[in-house]
Amino acid sequence: MTPVDPVLVFDGDCAFCSSCVRFAERYLRQTLASGGWQAQPYQFADLAALGVSEERAEREVLWVTPVGQVYGGAAAVAKLLLRSGNAWAWLGGLLELAPARPVAELGYRWVSRNRHRMPGGTKACALPRR
């Protein structure tokens, strides 16, 4: 079954990730200009149907479009912000600009590696070792 709206795939076992998604659901949906989106923990998502591996889904947030394009990490956050419209879209557009992309990805990777130390994070939020 192909989703009608983009899907934000995240780590449902991570308290920090879940808090971020709740924030997005509360504040980003209120300003929707171009349609909806849905959030799914990767633990309950049909990853094969979405075209992503479990290994990738446990390492970064993913934005999967209805046509199967997959964006990960900072690019996924940028797509979510763009989809949300208004001032959020400006921030998403900024994250997609060539000079900002590497900085955004660096910031995303730092937060990802330290999410168990973030507000609301727990030891269960730590990324699995490679």
Rank of each mutant, 00 (worst) to 15 (best):
E58L: 12
G35I: 06
G35C: 05
G51Q: 04
Y71T: 07
R109S: 00
A39Y: 08
L47F: 01
L62H: 00
G92N: 07
V52R: 00
A45M: 10
L82E: 13
P41A: 15
A33S: 12
Q43I: 03
A75Q: 13
V103F: 14
V61R: 00
A48T: 14
A49D: 14
W90P: 00
Q38D: 11
L62Y: 00
P102T: 10
W90R: 09
L50D: 04
E60C: 03
E60W: 00
L95P: 03
L82T: 10
G92S: 10
D46W: 06
G72I: 09
A48Q: 15
Y108R: 06
S34V: 06
P99T: 07
P99M: 12
A45Y: 06
A76Q: 08
L94K: 04
V111P: 02
L32Q: 15
Y42L: 05
S84R: 08
A45P: 04
P66I: 03
R83N: 04
A87F: 09
Q40T: 13
A49H: 09
G51N: 04
P102E: 09
A39I: 08
S53T: 13
L32M: 14
E55W: 08
V64W: 10
Q40D: 13
E54R: 10
L95M: 15
A78I: 11
L62A: 01
L47D: 12
G85T: 01
A48C: 05
Q43K: 02
L95N: 12
F44P: 01
G107A: 07
E60H: 06
G92Q: 02
V103I: 15
W88D: 03
A87D: 12
L91V: 15
S84N: 01
R56F: 00
L80H: 07
V103Y: 12
A74F: 02
E96K: 13
Y71G: 00
L81G: 00
Y71A: 12
Q38F: 07
N86K: 13
G35E: 08
V61D: 01
L32G: 15
F44Y: 11
A48G: 11
A75P: 09
G73W: 07
W37N: 06
G107S: 11
E54T: 14
W37R: 03
G72W: 08
A75F: 04
G93N: 12
A76L: 11
Y42N: 00
L95H: 02
G36E: 14
P99C: 05
V77M: 03
V70A: 05
P66C: 13
Q69N: 03
V52A: 04
